[in-house]
Design a protein around this nucleic acid. Structure first.
Lengths: 337, 337
DNA sequence: TTGAAAGCGGTACCAA
DNA sequence: TTGGTACCGCTTTCAA
């Protein structure tokens, strides 16, 4: 194992100079810096993590807590974990996984032992137990998602209500005055906040614009094709021609399938907006206007905020809502006449 | 932050006694041990991770490398990550995530900086680049899966070939002499080893027992229902009544659906064995004999081996194949006459 | 059974 | 621009 001493010896300088040259925390003459870097390079020097933590009071590790709940959608969840890991590495941080069972015990443990510089919280529940812990530990904690009680918390999330407004606006602008919202599974409305937030946004704006809104979930625990088909069929029979979909990809496929069966043309006879989709809607059999939920955006912002708070611990807690964007794909039927 | 000094002061002993009392590495009188434990408890003492790493040359962290590849099945992958994390925590270890892009750079980095005690490798490819790195770093590395070149490597995996043998044996024992193997996606046969290993096991035993084997993949990149339906239909039309399924849950559903359409009774007219299924086959619409691939088993064994190697670094590298088990559910049609 | 003290490998302050 | 050195908080050897 190469230590800083060996690098110093090889470069003919003191260990403090090596430390400063590599960290850049003190100006070092161009010449010696090169010598040091060369020595470090050729010796394959990598600072000892433990020593660095101890002396520097920095671990360069973030904890990521992820309680895999009943309603956790594996692919979406993985996208968030991956996006967080990538964003963290970009800033020089590694991710320590705190799964399940011990998310709360784990948060306390890593905080008390100074194992991590910050904690990122995924898969936030309305009454999340991690809220209390976040308040009690000294380690900066960032929620990716919103719990009910946000007092003194730092949170990052897509502005789901604004997404709801946006979806209704586009449809209403194109003349729709009756909309079916195909929502998430029932369990997710109980165990998470974001489905409700989108629903609320859609409801608010529907009321404001005098749009008649029908709403249905896509199943109890998972997508139930029969339930979804029934809702869509009833809506179509009822003359509804505008849909907001806030659900998994399979729900989109069912909807497109039924339209096909009935010979209804997307963007001509029928309008669809996919709201807060975390999967790639380009994979669907037909192009659909989308208000995407981009894991990278939330996770990068969360990491950035964590880094900022480490640089300036006096930064106040704050809720960061990411404004939704609208990605048109021609699935809105233009207003008639 | 409470340090070991404060605990020592509170208990009226030296810090070394505190250290020994809490680690149990030296006998400490019952009385003082209690005093120390009480003090530690009431002060909420948690040893500093950095200090511990530095002094103890142990980090109590395992790295988990997971290059999310094209053929990665999210739910299965998550099950492995979760199982690893749980098993590691049981032994007192945390998991540091090394995702994608930097799996190789990351392995070198965490090894050189002594950030982790061992490295666990997930999602192993036939020509995995991590094999070379595992050989070059001092950090013990355990593969969960088998690469082509296993020289000097420690690997853990289900014995897929034995699983193939087992599946054929059961069907052949019940009188089947013609079998259709519904396999994984094509890409997985190129990017992973386990599908081929199961296939080989099935082929070997089919040859040995004079069973006529037909084999088909379930699609190019993902399950393609049309492809699967066609293969099943052709087989049934051809009189084949025995199936080994080594594929995702949806393939099972398609097969059961077609049997239903044709009025073929499972376990009476037709036999099915699900081989190396990593999902819960009890979720399927009908009970099916299963040779399960249990992530917990592989991951727990991997963690255990890692721990053993840390305790005794002289243990030789070794391939550990987990023998398959057969879980009957009545989906094998008994031999006629 | 217990304590004193020498590291572990860095960081960062104080001098020069 | 550089060097010397006092920690950081714990583990473990050596002594008592």
């Amino acid at each position: 194992m190469t230590t800083i001493h060996e690098v110093a010896a090889a470069a003919g300088v003191s260990i403090s100079t090596v430390s400063y040259a590599l960290s850049g925390k003190r100006p070092v003459s161009e010449k010696t810096r090169r010598r040091i870097e060369d020595a470090a390079q050729s010796l394959g020097y990598q600072p000892d993590a433990g020593a660095r933590m101890l002396a520097g009071r920095r671990t360069n590790i973030f904890a990521l807590t992820e309680p895999l709940r009943a309603d956790t959608h594996a692919p979406t969840h993985m996208a968030f974990v991956l996006a967080t890991a990538v964003a963290a590495r970009h800033r020089g941080y590694d991710i320590l996984l705190l799964t399940d069972e011990q998310t709360s015990e784990g948060m306390n443990r890593v905080a008390a032992s100074n194992l991590v510089d910050a904690i990122l919280v995924l898969d936030v529940a309305p009454d999340d137990e991690r809220v209390e812990i976040a308040r009690s530990v000294r380690t900066p904690t960032i929620f990716i998602g919103l719990p009910d009680d946000q007092r003194d918390l730092t949170c990052v999330d897509l502005d789901f209500e604004a997404a709801g407004h946006l979806a209704v606006d586009r449809l209403a602008d194109a003349g729709s005055d009756r909309i079916l919202l195909l929502g998430q599974t029932e369990v997710s409305y109980r165990k998470s906040n974001f489905p409700r937030r989108l629903l609320r946004g859609v409801q608010e704006r529907s009321d404001a614009r005098a749009v008649a809104l029908t709403w249905t979930s896509s199943g109890a625990l998972a997508t139930e094709p029969a339930v979804v088909r029934a809702a869509i069929t009833a809506a179509l029979d009822d003359g509804i021609r505008a849909f907001i979909v806030h659900a998994a990809d399979d729900v989109h496929e069912i909807l497109l399938g039924i339209l096909g069966e009935r010979g209804l043309r997307l963007g001509v006879d029928v309008s669809i907006v996919s709201a807060a989709a975390s999967f790639d809607t380009a994979m669907l059999p037909a192009p659909i206007d989308t208000i995407p939920l981009v894991p990278q955006d939330s996770c990068e912002l969360a990491v950035e905020i964590a880094v900022r708070r480490l640089e300036d611990p006096r930064l106040p807690a704050q809720i960061h809502l990411i404004p939704p964007i609208y990605r048109p794909a021609g699935s809105i039927a233009p207003a008639r006449e």
